[in-house]
Design a protein around this nucleic acid. Structure first.
Lengths: 138, 138
DNA sequence: ATCATATGTATGTCCATGCAATCACTGTCT
DNA sequence: AGACAGTGATTGCATGGACATACATATGAT
């Protein structure tokens, strides 16, 4: 049974290495962190390129407060803006700006390339052929 | 090509969920964090249950300063002690204490069980059958 | 032996995240 | 209408990690 732990350890180390590499690429070449990049990506695919904090949080599997701060970050860099929700005054939309969109679009190819390269480098392209049960968030 | 990113995203989310679950289990039931647990585990398998900071860091894929602080933590909880290196006075050994060892031993079965359960819950036991190229650390 | 450089560890500072408490608003029940 | 439980977001605080730097010791060249 202990080999299971071993394998798991190996797996997460590989995953961590790859994530780190992706993060480095994005940061160095586009000045965006990994989670910021993912937030932009999610926003760009949402209707009207906007989402409320909670929704964004649940997509990113981050908690609300982290997202609140991330959005603050994105906003500081001009990549998104906040927009008050007309029907529910508690709500806040995070909206992708043009700058945000173009930043995303220029980063995307490098991200994909880095991912492909990193997977290959670790000899684990097959990881992506795993199909999950897609268990819901806890 | 974008599906590759999608799949990768799914993968890391599943991995993150599982890691979080493992961490919670360890923290709640044994008062040890996930990386602390892994450090104990690595120490316990090392000759004389001791390692120098750098070695520990490289096993854990953490940088040296993080390990320095982690060891401080472990030491504060009485799970390890520092021991000066006789032949190289710059060096410091981190040595597992009896308390550390028994803590590890009591945590281990729960860890393994939690891992098995989490893998099953996400329907991805097959993840562990991936064989990696075991690329070295960057 | 001396000095320059490399190595091992620790410390200062910053950043991202989580949790708990809070603020602001909503909707419901009476 | 008024009270109040619930919901969305923000804020205070703590933690763990990274990077740069400091400090002590070791090693190697002259």
């Amino acid at each position: 049974m202990a080999e299971k732990s071993e394998l798991w350890l190996k797996l997460i180390q590989v995953v961590a290495n790859i994530e780190a590499e992706l993060g480095r690429t994005l940061q160095e070449q586009h000045g965006v962190g990994l989670s910021d990049y993912r937030a932009l990506q999610i926003l760009s695919r949402s209707p009207d390129s906007e989402l409320r904090m909670q929704e964004l949080a649940s997509y990113l599997r981050l908690n609300q407060s982290s997202v609140s701060r991330m959005v603050e970050r994105l906003e500081r860099h001009g990549l998104t803006i906040r927009d008050l929700c007309p029907d529910d005054k508690r709500g806040v939309y995070t909206v992708l700006t043009d700058k945000g969109r173009s930043r995303l679009e220029s980063a995307q190819p490098d991200y994909e390339a880095a991912l492909t390269a990193a997977l290959k480098e670790h000899g684990c392209e097959e990881l992506l052929s795993t199909k999950f049960g897609t268990a819901e968030t806890k």
